[in-house]
Design a binder for these strands. Structure first.
Lengths: 186, 186
DNA sequence: TTGACGTCGGACATTGCTGTCTGATCTACT
DNA sequence: AGTAGATCAGACAGCAATGTCCGACGTCAA
């Protein structure tokens, strides 16, 4: 693999994330424009639009997985660990939210498979909190995860709309999520 | 307005909901087919695809607004009132879950504006709950409202993705929202 | 009944996209 | 420096959808 090819691929993936975030149906031409590349070049590396989106999704999930793993969700009090995870998510995962919507119509099995690595880190944390009574136990883990994602996204929207000061968002988000999962947010 | 025109409009709106539910990008041709109408007829009543979708959305929100008003959000314990509101909203929304996904990619400002009528009923309820200590008071009302909207929408999306059984959604949603607002969901 | 309104059936131009291909030009590696 | 590999610039066909238009035909309501 030549160095310039590698650069192109990186630029394309980067541009695809940006473009698809602002418009989930962004065209290949738009992605190419943002990548500073000609449209045909994309097809050199990705046989089709679908293949490109799959590659982008996989990379996004890999990034998220790494960011979450980095804050050691398996250590310490569940509430504190979740707090750390939320901070990581707030900073890292936010920009990929659009991809969630794009992939939402995929076969359920494939979707589940793609999220497996994230689940692998979060599920034990949530389960641990359910065991020791920190989080509501009569709720599926997937629901808790959906709740977390929804509130992170809502926080992002509120912030962008200037309906809440930037400095206030993180504590608000954390308190709301902890409450939603059933923890008493102190 | 002639009677057959009124029938056509009703059939088109009905068909649009159905078609967009099974495919959020359903074409005008598909909608026309389901409505038992020729494609051109749609353009007689709705100048563009966007206008049709807007009409469908507005009607859905109007229905939800009416359903919420009907359960008297201004009466009784705030937690109980919120519970009633969530039940009413969820049931009315049942038919329109697909529209949630479609409108999710709209400009945030427009989304906010379309939800205004629902918010108008909710804001006093939330304020009342903050006053009597049922809901977290150190949080802007707008944040609580955003939280509620986000969780209702998330519930809708989870349901559509078949990640949670339909029968479980309502109690899960209620428990999660009450917790997120700081009430003890008992 | 009659005429205005509405729908039908289909043709039509336009647009925007995907995916392919070409030859020319550039660039990384040996 | 030379060569294989990569990008560029742009053309091309194919397709699907939107939105417009038409004449013929049905249907509502006065």
């Amino acid at each position: 693999m030549r160095a310039d090819a590698e650069r192109s691929i990186a630029a394309i993936l980067e541009a695809a994330v940006d473009a698809l975030t602002s418009d989930p149906e962004a065209s290949m031409a738009e992605i190419a424009r943002r990548a500073g590349v000609v449209r045909a070049t994309i097809y050199v590396h990705f046989p089709s639009r679908e293949a490109l989106i799959e590659a982008v999704t996989k990379r996004a999930i890999a990034d998220a997985t790494q960011a979450i793993a980095a804050v050691e969700p398996a250590s310490g009090e569940p509430a504190a660990a979740l707090r750390r995870v939320l901070e990581a998510a707030w900073r890292t995962l936010g920009r990929f939210h659009a991809l969630v919507a794009i992939n939402a119509r995929l076969p359920a099995a494939e979707l589940h498979e793609r999220h497996a690595s994230v689940m692998a880190h979060l599920a034990p944390l949530v389960a641990r909190g359910q065991d020791d009574g920190t989080f509501r136990a009569n709720v599926p883990i997937a629901w808790h995860l959906a709740t977390i994602m929804a509130l992170v996204h809502a926080a992002s929207i509120e912030l962008q709309a200037d309906r809440v000061p930037a400095a206030d968002v993180e504590p608000l988000l954390i308190a709301t999520v902890l409450g939603a999962l059933g923890a008493t947010p102190a």
